[in-house]
């Protein structure tokens, strides 16, 4: 068989896996564009989780009570975990962790623009949980059925944890809304700042999203940007009413015919400006990430040196299937004696 014919066979087997709604797994043959698109999407997603720790981490030391501090710490730690699940999924596509980290820090790969907005008041912690994690949930739930196995499995794990994120945010805002006029004003001001950027999280309008169609054909994406944005608006309006805040959009109204809310135009100029690096915090976020990477260098090196000196790392030649069995036996023994 010629190489071309070979590739045609592989392609048709890939196509039929996708057509049957089956999953593609790491060692399967896949079109190079499918792989590249996935790497870009999963990396951007992973980077968003990692950079996303910064705006909220900003308030950990100033959380108003031990309870709120513990919750916020747990939430930010979850986001680190989400980043790690996704990096791990991305690495199955043949990129290294180091390469991903470098591409985030050099700006070669992006993260979600929402994290380039500052957290100016403590109410922002609540608003982020409610609206930003809310938008993330809208985006991520359909991705649990994405065609690439490791990505879908990471999303399932993430979605299980996101519900806590959104609920703690909403509860925080409810508590503030039951407080003083000043606290209610803080919540409204925060919602005013975050509403539109949260809607931008779904990406440009379908007309300006040239890759959507291909990604949907591949089962990487399950809904268009505009569909998800509409879903977010429809879910959020009754939540805003229950909370007692006004969403800052004079064009927002129920459309009986469509069975959905109409809403105003997103400021796409602002969106593209932030994507291109001119948001309020782009530089600060990347500088902080680089600083953390550099500050951690000695820890990474020391851990490796210690592992080598203590003989705690088996050399590559010692690695064999036999080690799997012996490692598991050791763990079983420990379990027994616990």
């Amino acid at each position: 068989m010629t190489a071309v014919a070979d590739e045609a066979v592989l392609q048709s087997s890939f196509d039929s896996t996708i057509a049957h709604n089956d999953r593609i797994e790491p060692r399967d043959w896949m079109p190079e564009d499918y792989r590249k698109t996935l790497v870009r999407q999963i990396a951007q997603h992973a980077h968003s989780e990692i950079i996303g720790m910064q705006p909220e981490g900003n308030w950990i030391s100033r959380a108003p009570s031990l309870r709120r501090k513990a919750i916020l710490l747990a939430k930010v730690q979850d986001e680190a975990g989400h980043g790690l699940y996704l990096y791990s999924a991305c690495e199955t596509l043949g990129v290294s962790r180091e390469e991903l980290t470098q591409k985030l820090m050099s700006g070669a790969q992006k993260y979600s623009s929402i994290f380039n907005y500052p957290t100016l008041s403590y109410a922002d912690v609540g608003t982020i949980g409610w609206l930003v994690d809310g938008a993330a949930i809208c985006n991520q739930v359909p991705l649990c059925r994405t065609s690439y196995g490791p990505y879908g499995r990471a999303m399932i794990r993430i979605c299980k944890e996101e519900s806590f994120h959104q609920r703690q945010g909403y509860e925080l805002l409810m508590t503030m809304m039951r407080g003083t006029d000043e606290q209610r004003a803080m919540v409204q001001e925060s919602v005013d700042r975050f509403w539109w950027p949260a809607l931008m999280m779904f990406g440009p309008p379908d007309g300006d999203s040239p890759n959507t169609e291909r990604s949907m054909a591949w089962g990487i994406k399950r809904h268009t940007n505009d569909e998800l944005r509409q879903r977010m608006v429809d879910m959020t309006v009754p939540q805003a009413e229950a909370l007692g805040v006004t969403l800052p959009d004079p064009d927002l109204r129920w459309n009986e015919e469509r069975g959905s809310y109409d809403f105003g135009e997103v400021d796409w100029e602002e969106f593209w400006a932030v994507v291109k690096g001119n948001g309020p915090c782009n530089e600060q976020r990347l500088a902080h990430r680089r600083q953390a990477y550099d500050d951690g260098a000695w820890v990474r090196e020391a851990a490796l040196a210690f592992a080598a000196s203590a003989g705690r790392v088996a050399s590559a030649s010692e690695d064999s299937a036999g080690r799997v069995a012996s490692a598991s036996e050791r763990i079983e023994t420990k379990e027994e004696t616990r």
Binding site: A74, Q77, D78, G81, L84, Y85, S88, A89, E91, R97, R153, A154, R157, R300, A303, L304, F306, A307, A310, R312, V313, A327
Partner: peptide, 21 residues
């Protein structure tokens, strides 16, 4: 899933933090 660690013991600790919160 997977993770990076300098040695077996640290891999266990990281696994606890990443996969069993």
């Amino acid at each position: 899933g997977s993770l990076h660690a300098p040695d077996d013991q640290m891999a266990l600790r990281h696994a606890r933090d990443v996969y069993t919160r």
